[in-house]
Simulated assay, not measured.
Amino acid sequence: MRAMEPDRHSYISGVLVMEKTKLLYQQMYSGKVFTWIHLMPIFCSSMVRAQIQTNSDSKNLVTHKPTPTSEALSGVTVEPTRKSRSDSERPESLSKDLFTMSNLSVSDPELEKPANGSYSDVYEKYVLPCIAEFLGTAFFIFNGCASVTENTEGTGHLQPALAHGLALGIAVAIFARVSGGHMNPAVSLGAALIGGLNIFLLIPYWAAQLCGGMVGAALAKAITSDVKFFNATGAAFKSIERDEQVGSAIVAEVVMTAYLVMTVCMGTINKKSTTTLAPLCIGLSVTVGILAGGSVSGGCMNPARALGSALVANYWDYHWVYWVGPITGSLIVGLLLRVFIGDQKIRVLMT
């Protein structure tokens, strides 16, 4: 009977480990059904390990000869303790065994993540956002330029305003979780100034947006008849005709771009004011800007929009206004958020 005790101990230990393992993986994968058949390999390996541990401990108890100590000399009996793994160590080792079993169809997504520094990480962090910015800007500017060249007589700025605003809102909603949904060099600059964009991505973002603007304007030209394209000057901004209009046009671009960049930064980056309605608000800010300042400066607010149409139409009169105005407006918003109205993470003063 004494010789059978190790086997009995190993069987009971295996059953206990089996029950703990079953409960552990039912908690980790709720909804999955684990049966004894699925966990049989672990049960067998657990029994073998328990048997080996029991035999080893039995030998240690037999061959161990306690040395005389102060407790022994004083008449106190010291019993040898059996060293075993704690319960907190068992689930970790068992989970490793489970995930290496090829006959089980469970897997942990965290274990399948690529190692840091892999090509997948580089693509996700640096390449994919630039591709999203390129595509989003191309779609946005295509619709915007097409709405200008195909503008119906009598609608004024209403058709371009709605087309630009709706197209931008849709593009932001689609690509916001990939790249932030900027579609505008001025917006990217404002986001970088307040910490919403990695500063090393600013130049790649600008390059992607400018290229997307050129592609979008070229596609708009491809679907427009020569007469309409010529009459609309290729959707280029031609509201400024004299030097006396430059001052008011720059002010209009600064204010309208500041309103747009403020909407983006406060609606998507500033923690206290983020909202799920951000794409709608961003699109509406462009619509409002075109309706308000379309007759003053054209309502550009976007250097990529200005460059694409100017390049396709070869119209460069006062083109610099549509760079100076939006960039200045973006710098003002960055200063305001950093000093006054940003949250504690953004503000550099009174934090």
Rank of each mutant, 00 (worst) to 15 (best):
I341S: 14
R177K: 09
L73I: 12
E5H: 08
N270F: 08
A132T: 00
D121L: 14
G299D: 05
P279C: 03
G196R: 02
E124Q: 13
I282C: 10
P68D: 04
V339T: 14
C211V: 08
C130W: 01
M47T: 14
M40T: 14
T287Q: 07
L24I: 09
A161T: 03
A292R: 03
G144L: 06
Y25Q: 07
T155Q: 03
I290F: 07
V255T: 13
S105E: 09
M18A: 14
N231C: 10
L291A: 00
G289R: 02
K20F: 13
G117N: 07
L193S: 01
A235R: 00
E153T: 08
A176L: 11
L337D: 02
T328Y: 04
Y11K: 14
V264A: 03
T155I: 10
L197P: 03
C300N: 10
P129H: 04
N151L: 10
T328R: 00
H38E: 14
P204L: 08
V33Q: 12
T274E: 15
T67C: 10
M214A: 10
M262S: 08
A161Q: 00
E244K: 02
E79D: 03
F200D: 00
T67M: 07
G190I: 04
N103D: 11
T54Q: 15
L311K: 04
V321E: 01
A207V: 15
H64A: 10
C145M: 06
D97H: 15
T351S: 04
G342N: 02
L336D: 00
S45G: 11
G31E: 07
L24E: 04
A132L: 02
L336T: 11
Q209G: 03
V246H: 08
N103S: 14
S285N: 05
Q51N: 07
L202F: 15
R177D: 15
C145K: 03
C211I: 09
G136K: 01
P326G: 08
Q159G: 02
T287S: 11
L94S: 09
L168W: 08
